[in-house]
Simulated assay, not measured.
Amino acid sequence: MLSRIAESLFWIGRYVERADGTARILDVHLQLLLEDPWIDEDTACRSLLSVMGSAVEPDHALTRGDVLSILAVDRSHPASIAYSIGAARENARRAREVVSTELWEALNTTRARMPRRVANDKVHEFFGWVRERSALAVGIVESSSSRDESWSFFTLGRSLERADMTARLLATRSLTEASGPSWTTILRSCGAYEAYLRTYRGVPSATNAAEFLLLDRLFPRSILYSVTRAENCLRDIEPRGTGRAGVGDAALRQLGQIRSELEYRPIHDIIDDLQRHMDAVQSATSSASEAVRQRYFPTNAAPSWVGESS
């Protein structure tokens, strides 16, 4: 597969998942700001922007409208939903020869229908629409793609981004502590509430809910499931990544280390320092993504010439 095509598929997966994850996080926290009058809106908004990697200068008090503008409809902001959908569509255009007509039309239509502003009474509806369009794009790939390198690169991007976004969602739990979102709210935002009830058969507690979203091996939005799936994709792309002496693939090493760190650490230890562990997950996914870029689609690589031996 051409490096250009692999890179585009990888980033389509990442951007589609980023749009979905950002919509889920914003839906939870903007609703929380609306319902809880005791929260300091400016502090909560700045903390949320910081978690999303979008800290702003303290020149004025921030409101939920500012957050919505920055992280939802700003087409020039790299962390916004509108930017992610536009970037996914652009990468699909670059890889048009391997992207199916259905996926291209889905991304193109979503980009064309992305609003430039959202009314306050339409915010929840907008986030639902983003989740539905993201699910449509993923469903098209899952139902109509051969399980070859194209699918592996797309799924690798999605899995890395999903682990990162779930870590960010869990990190927001400690933003305002007592006034933060409940574990029930967080589970619902991940579409995990009913799956959690079937697994634990009880009202969500901090320990069980965190354990489910962090370490459940069967739930597709858990961090452990996402990291493991990313590892499997890397092994499918490069079966020789795990050699006779250790692991040679840098991305596999990063993912294996963070998976082991979470998998073998007691859940109470993770919850006691949740912010640090979620930062470690985000750092590992970022490092793994960079290792994938350097290994499979390096940019500005200088050509090397091998001269004829005399």
Rank of each mutant, 00 (worst) to 15 (best):
S3E: 00
S3T: 05
E7Q: 15
S8V: 03
I25Q: 04
L26S: 01
V28Q: 04
L30I: 12
L32S: 05
L34Y: 09
L34R: 13
L34S: 12
E35Q: 13
P37K: 14
W38S: 15
C45D: 00
R46E: 10
R46C: 13
S47E: 14
V51Y: 07
S54W: 06
A61S: 13
L62S: 02
T63S: 15
T63G: 13
T63D: 10
G65Q: 13
L68S: 11
V73S: 09
P78D: 02
Y83Q: 04
I85N: 03
G86A: 06
A88M: 05
E90L: 15
R93D: 08
E97Q: 09
W104M: 14
P115F: 13
V118Y: 06
A119K: 11
F127M: 14
G128K: 08
G139N: 00
S143P: 06
S146M: 12
R147M: 05
R147F: 07
S150I: 07
W151T: 06
W151N: 08
S152F: 15
F154C: 01
S159I: 08
L160E: 01
L169D: 00
L170Q: 04
A171Y: 03
A171C: 07
L175M: 15
E177Q: 09
A178M: 14
G180E: 04
S182F: 01
S189H: 05
G191E: 03
R198Q: 15
V203T: 15
S205Q: 14
A209D: 09
E211L: 11
F212G: 01
L213K: 02
L218H: 11
I223H: 02
S226V: 00
T228E: 07
R229M: 00
E231C: 06
L234W: 07
R235L: 15
R235T: 13
I237R: 09
I237S: 07
E238K: 14
R240M: 07
G241H: 09
A245D: 01
A245T: 04
V247F: 07
G248A: 10
Q254N: 11
L274P: 00
Q275R: 12
R276A: 10
R276Y: 03
H277F: 13
M278W: 04
V281C: 10
Q282V: 08
S287R: 15
A288T: 00
A288Y: 01
E290Q: 15
V292W: 12
Q294L: 14
Q294T: 08
R295L: 13
A301C: 02
P303W: 02
W305R: 11
V306M: 11
S309Y: 11
S309N: 11
